[in-house]
Simulated assay, not measured.
Amino acid sequence: MTVPATTIRPVLLTAEEVAEMLRIGRSTVYLLLANKELTSIKIGRSRRIRPADVEAYIERQAANAA
């Protein structure tokens, strides 16, 4: 049984995908990573971000805005 690709949630996201999700620039994502506001893992020369880390970042930002 195959699962349609649209129902599979990626385990790791690229900086470009995170930028698209948050509607910010890719360079802003890298700035967030450099400032340790958003966590990532390194695989080879690439940085990948877990969706849970993006959600945690959003929650922190929402809490700070209140």
Rank of each mutant, 00 (worst) to 15 (best):
R26K: 12
L38W: 02
R26L: 11
A34G: 06
R23H: 14
V29Q: 00
L33S: 11
L12K: 03
E20N: 10
L13G: 05
L22N: 08
E17A: 08
G25T: 00
E17Y: 13
A15G: 14
I24H: 03
E17Q: 07
R23V: 14
L22F: 11
P10A: 09
V18Q: 04
E17H: 04
E16H: 12
R9A: 15
E37A: 12
N35V: 14
Y30F: 15
L22C: 13
S27L: 13
E20D: 14
E16L: 13
L31R: 15
A19Y: 06
T28C: 02
L12C: 13
R9C: 03
L31S: 05
E16D: 11
T28S: 14
S27G: 11
V11S: 02
L32E: 00
T39C: 13
T39A: 13
L22Q: 06
L38M: 06
T14I: 08
V18R: 05
R26H: 14
P10H: 06
R23A: 09
E37Q: 15
T28M: 10
A15N: 04
L33N: 12
A19C: 03
L12D: 10
L33R: 01
E17T: 05
P10N: 04
L12H: 08
V11W: 15
T39S: 11
S27T: 11
L12M: 10
T39K: 12
L33C: 13
Y30A: 08
K36V: 14
